[in-house]
């Protein structure tokens, strides 16, 4: 993988509490995710997967080490600068969809772009295109409580994929979806990475992790190992070409 480095974690630690109640959620994680690459993070509950994702997206600050997004060290940024990075460079999809209940699907999707100064009309056009991509064009003007869990999740995905986000962070993005819709979401994520974004997918489902280029295993706040394809895919497709 030779793409530009989009996300880098350098010796990142995260500790909650003090003394006897001290919990080491992450204990020194190094991770590089490049443009065009989708990296899955797998591990048991409490292994630090979701903490890693929050730190990678600047939603939480590390106790030690550095998080760097597109060459910018997050710790050196003011709150306003950090908010701008989160809005412009990073798309998030979390288990709970984090939609604003008082806004329609299209408004939820267009909000980050409007906050960045795009006109309401242009932001809506982009939002409708993103909603169409996740099969929700007809639901654009519905409010979250008028949609199923699966539809709300797809709105959250449209919001994460809109604009020029170079880093897409997802935590169990297919949780509320049936197998086929879940797969459609993973195809979208895969395509966005193939087009040049960097993606991190936290999941406990091996079938979902298999869409990634690399699978990183995390245990007790440490990266244990990683897995890559066997490269037998070509054999499966081609078979034996011998002819009489």
């Amino acid at each position: 993988m030779s793409g530009k480095t989009i996300l880098e974690l350098r010796g990142v630690t995260r500790t909650h509490g003090k003394g006897a109640a001290e919990v080491h959620a992450l204990r020194g994680v190094d991770l590089v995710v490049r443009a065009g690459e989708l990296v899955a993070v797998m591990g048991p509950s409490g292994s630090g997967k979701s903490t890693l994702l929050s730190l990678a997206g600047g939603l939480d600050s590390p106790s030690g080490g550095e998080v760097v997004i597109e060459g910018t060290t997050l710790a050196s940024q003011s709150k306003a600068q950090l908010a701008a990075i989160r809005r412009r460079s990073v798309g998030y999809v979390f288990q709970d969809y984090n939609l604003i209940p008082a806004l329609t699907a299209a408004e939820n999707v267009s909000l980050p772009q409007e906050l960045d100064g795009l006109s309401a009309r242009k932001a809506r056009v982009a939002a409708l295109a993103a909603l169409a991509e996740v099969g929700l064009r007809a639901e654009a003007d519905r409010f979250p409580d008028e949609m199923s869990g699966g539809q709300q999740q797809r709105v959250a995905i449209a919001r994460a994929l809109i604009g020029e986000r170079r880093l897409i962070l997802t935590d169990e993005p297919t949780g509320a979806l049936d197998t086929e819709t879940g797969e459609a979401v993973l195809r979208l994520l895969r395509r966005r990475c193939d087009e040049g974004a960097a993606g991190v997918l936290v999941t406990h489902e091996s079938r979902h992790a298999a869409w990634a280029d690399r699978i990183v295993f995390i245990r007790d706040g440490l990266v244990l190992d990683e897995s890559a394809p066997l490269q037998h895919a070509e054999d499966l497709l081609v078979g034996d070409e011998a002819q009489p």
Partner: peptide
């Protein structure tokens, strides 16, 4: 598990195409 996941990645790549 690592081996099975790598195989699963292979199958998924074929499926994606």
């Amino acid at each position: 598990r690592k081996h099975a996941l790598a195989a699963l990645q292979d199958y998924t790549r074929v499926k994606a195409r």
